[in-house]
Design a binder for these strands. Structure first.
Lengths: 336, 336
DNA sequence: TTGTAAGCGTTATCAT
DNA sequence: ATGATAACGCTTACAA
């Protein structure tokens, strides 16, 4: 920048203003500066600008892990929206580890990010590190895995409604003994999915049967084991609603291996609408989580917070509506 | 930092040194500084440090898109290795668009990243924006999708060898009419996979049969169509080696729908070792691309460049060895 | 072992 | 419409 100033015989102030399109700058001067900048291929130093201005155009995004369709898609959504608005994103993984999560928060704060978007790790039980973020006046938005508490800005899927839709669908197909493969109940998403399941049963005036609700780790193996347990019941279920697709796959595998027909004997619905639902045979009905919309919405919520300024300490919740994709694993059941 | 200095009655130099563990600092002073820093919860400003030092601990990573198992896994590998070494990563997507790629490079340079790791977009034909990176003295490493040219540091998979292993495996299982679902031949990865296929045939003194090589877009539908074409041949193949897993899945679906048994009538091998290979029935034999190792290797190559200093303008190539995972789709064939 | 002071590349304030 | 100058928070010669 000093070079430009010397070359053109003007002050650095003028250069700075011309480059940042300040209103009070001569159009002639401006053009001259821009031209010379191109010629000398001037490279702006965002670090210096950020240091001076006290805020950068960097956004911290933390997820438990970046692999896996869900988070990769959400991050894609965030990055796309962010880059359109001139933000770059710094990505961090907590690897489901609170300690790592804390370290990442430190790193992001040190990097003077303009905001932090986070999906918390499974092992997160205390939230002081997030308090710190607020103390620093850095906008904080949670997505998918959110914190219970006050003054939380978050974007979540309406998991309960998704589960409700899934279960209602099974009920509409004539199923009456619907089992639920539940996920770890300390995670809100899984708890809400169980609520949605119960809500749907209730809407049909059905009593929930505790023996039909099996908690598992949502892995393929977990789904198999849980399903084996269900088949061993005196009266086995006529449908299974799994809170995750992998466990649904496990269920499908086990049912097939036992000669149980899907959907004729047992109908099956999963959750997440992963790619595997279209690979399995039969294809698995599942609830879509609107990953990309979640990313976009998360970024949008961040910008809203920025515009609102740190003065207003509002709490905003964006709730996305899930969508059920009906497939062969739960369709065309013979009426009972 | 000034606060700490005032509070302890020492200079900022001492503070700085204590915090960065400088050698010539009294252990007593150091402890005192660290303790007070904790108490006042001092937050270092990496931007300022980076500005002063001229180099940051940020790494730019650019991929065509972050969704999709392959790039997500590579990024995971990079991030994990990088964060262990104290680097944060800024992620960018080119969306397969050169213009976006150029903009991203500008952004990353402006952010004063310590290095740039990139997998180029499909539409990249001129490389001036990468030249610029070198002019700025910023280490540049390509992975997977690399640039042809001199002085290129890159990490790639040995695709040809992967295809060779896959085809040799089919040959060892007794197959002799092995078809190949080839990908778009302007991409070097698919070209190399075809070469590997041909090389394996040659190693068994088999003449390649052009009617057995079908180019398709590597989608599920593409794989189905290509396989239908193969089955219509006067002498259909006894095995299919697909350059991608999705197309392999398409092939499997079509074969099953036609009553062709896999692997008994037609054996099947894919490429990429995607999750779907373990969901399909039978599980599909596939070539693993070592995504995570690629990420690690890419980061390691970056650190080597840093250590070597900008003085040495070496060209380094890391070639990862693919690994064949043999599964039911190509195993236990009855001898012919 | 510790302190002084300059400077990294910007931008904001105040003056002209 | 433009310029001089200070400052953002940190590191590092150089000096003590």
């Amino acid at each position: 920048m000093a070079d430009l100033a010397r070359e053109l015989g003007v002050s650095m102030t003028t250069i700075s203003r011309a480059l940042s399109d300040h209103h009070s700058i001569g159009p002639v001067t401006k053009q001259a500066v821009l031209k010379l900048a191109k010629k000398l291929n001037y490279q702006p130093n965002h670090l210096a600008a950020a240091l001076r201005k006290g805020r950068s155009k960097m956004l911290g995004v933390m997820v438990p892990y970046i692999e896996g369709r869900f988070f990769a898609s959400v991050v894609h959504g965030i990055e796309t929206a962010a880059s359109r608005a001139g933000y770059s994103i710094i990505i961090c993984q907590s690897s489901e580890d609170v300690a790592q999560e804390r370290r990442n928060i430190e790193t992001l704060l040190s990097a003077q990010v303009a905001g932090i978007l986070v999906s918390v790790s499974r092992t997160t039980l205390d939230f002081r590190h997030f308090e710190k973020v607020r103390k620093h006046g850095v906008p904080l938005v949670f997505f998918d895995r959110v914190l219970e508490g006050e003054n939380i800005n978050s974007v979540v899927l309406n998991d309960q409604k998704g589960a409700y839709l899934a279960t209602r669908h099974l009920l509409a197909q004539g199923c009456r003994r619907i089992a639920h493969l539940a996920g770890p109940q300390h995670l809100n998403i899984y708890k809400n999915r169980r609520f949605g399941y119960l809500e749907a049963l209730e809407s049909y005036n059905l009593q929930p049967d505790d023996s039909l609700i099996v908690e598992c780790d949502m892995s393929v193996d977990g789904g198999q084991a849980a399903t084996a347990q269900l088949l061993a019941l005196p009266t086995p279920p006529d449908a299974v609603f799994s809170a995750g697709d992998s466990a649904a796959l496990g269920a499908l595998q086990l049912l097939k291996s036992r000669g149980v027909r899907v959907p004729e004997d047992v109908a099956l619905v999963g959750f997440s609408n992963e790619a595997l639902t279209l690979v399995a045979e039969p294809n698995i009905t599942s609830v879509d989580q609107r990953c990309e919309e979640m990313g976009q919405a998360t970024f949008r919520l961040f910008t809203e917070l920025v515009e609102a300024g740190s003065t207003t300490l509002t709490q905003r919740q964006v709730v996305l509506q899930p969508q059920l994709f009906e497939r062969a694993s739960s369709l065309h059941l013979s009426p009972k």
